[in-house]
Write a protein that binds this DNA or RNA. Structure first.
Lengths: 227, 227
DNA sequence: GTAGGACTGTCATATTGCTGACATGTTGGT
DNA sequence: ACCAACATGTCAGCAATATGACAGTCCTAC
């Protein structure tokens, strides 16, 4: 792929705000681009973490399996997000599974190259710190939700975040497409598939949302999904 | 306090391994030392996070309160741990409460000073990254526990970690002192006080542990507390 | 050394939400 | 256009664990 195109892609990442054009070129040179389609696994636990990934398009989920086959999804990532960060946090293997949820374009970079870049640019280092801080905050909030909220509150507040992150504002509410399967939502909220189904249908009955496999529509303001 | 003494204290932190003596002196100069006794609060949510803390002695818990007065403890920290790290992760307020569990000696450092130091020492920056990565891993494991394990497994595996972190190996097992209250364990494991009581007594009946308010004794190997 | 507060022990009861089972609906590949 | 695989909808029953109540015990600050 032409360096110019890569450059253009990379400019979508906040993390690289304020970096010199020269640095950006260097970044682009060291980046390889890949397309991954739905259900592809990008890494497994125990895989060597030599690479850091930038998600340009699509959605990726970061999740774990229990010994008896249950699943819990730690994060659902969209365009502009970074993953595989354990590579630059001093771990040599991954702990989680990274799987493509919606066909994705991913930029991959060797961790050494990225670390070299960080040494040259304190700016970048600070951005990385901020990014990690933000991750840490998000996962702490996740813990808080798990402990303090009940199943339907967790589902509702997940929908809130989902719409906020991935939705488009319309004249009379919000629209997200495509939607997720009930099982995917269950894995994200530590609930059972059947519970998700029930809560979703209740919300539809109360005329707060409308949904199908293809879309989720929120009628009115985001704070209707407050819990 | 004499700079020498501070220096000596600071050398207990892994994070500063490999730093030049000159750098260490600079670190010591910018650090202030404080004693905090049980139940003192070091910071609240919304407090400005201008300071990063190094825990030299004692125990600190990092926790959150829900609106209806429930508590969940995110971390229990002992000597050698860092807290208030949101200061250097680009946040200007804290999200959690930091409270002294056992009388503590804390080194405090202005975040600017620490950031200056980081800019001068790529070594330190890497250590910080590692430390944050480790935090991230610990909290992900916490989420996994919450989702996959039941109450008594969570309590048992907490005891495992507690003994491992804070205990002393004896001829025929492990000893930790002092112990925690049942409520504190409940807050750490997202369970009810009564459940902790029950599990603890069951383990004592099975002769795996022995405990009182003053100590926890594990009879035999750590993996007896596997779940 | 005592009183008040904090912590522990034990029970009975309530409830949330998971499990399994099964029918119905939807989709995409050949 | 069909069929297999996947996803949704619904329900009854059950298990885990929280809650509330209260008695007994220990601790510590006067």
């Amino acid at each position: 792929m032409a360096e110019k195109t890569k450059l253009w892609y990379l400019q979508n990442f906040n993390m690289f705000d304020g970096m010199s054009p020269k640095m950006m070129m260097e970044l682009a040179e060291n980046t390889s681009m890949q397309n991954n389609s739905k259900k592809e696994i990008i890494y497994f636990p125990e895989d060597a973490s030599n690479t850091i990934y930038f998600l340009k398009a699509g959605k990726i989920k970061i999740y774990r399996l229990s010994e008896d086959g249950k699943t819990t999804t730690l994060q659902l990532l969209g365009p502009g997000e970074i993953f595989g960060e354990s590579a630059i946090l001093g771990q040599d293997t991954h702990d989680n599974i990274a799987e493509v949820v919606e066909d994705a374009i991913v930029c991959a970079m060797d961790k050494r190259d990225f670390q070299d870049l960080m040494e040259k640019s304190p700016n970048l280092t600070m951005s990385v710190n901020k990014f990690i801080g933000w991750r840490l905050r998000k996962i702490q909030a996740h813990v808080e939700d798990l402990v303090f909220k009940n199943a339907s509150q967790r589902i509702t507040s997940f929908l809130h975040r989902y719409v906020e992150t991935f939705g488009k504002k319309m004249v009379d509410g919000w629209m997200v497409r495509p939607f997720l399967t009930h099982q995917e939502i269950a894995d994200l909220t530590a609930t059972a598939r059947q519970t998700v189904n029930q809560v979703l249908n209740e919300l539809a009955e109360q005329d707060v949302i409308k949904f199908s496999r293809r879309f989720l529509q929120l009628k009115g303001e985001l704070d209707q999904l407050e819990s």
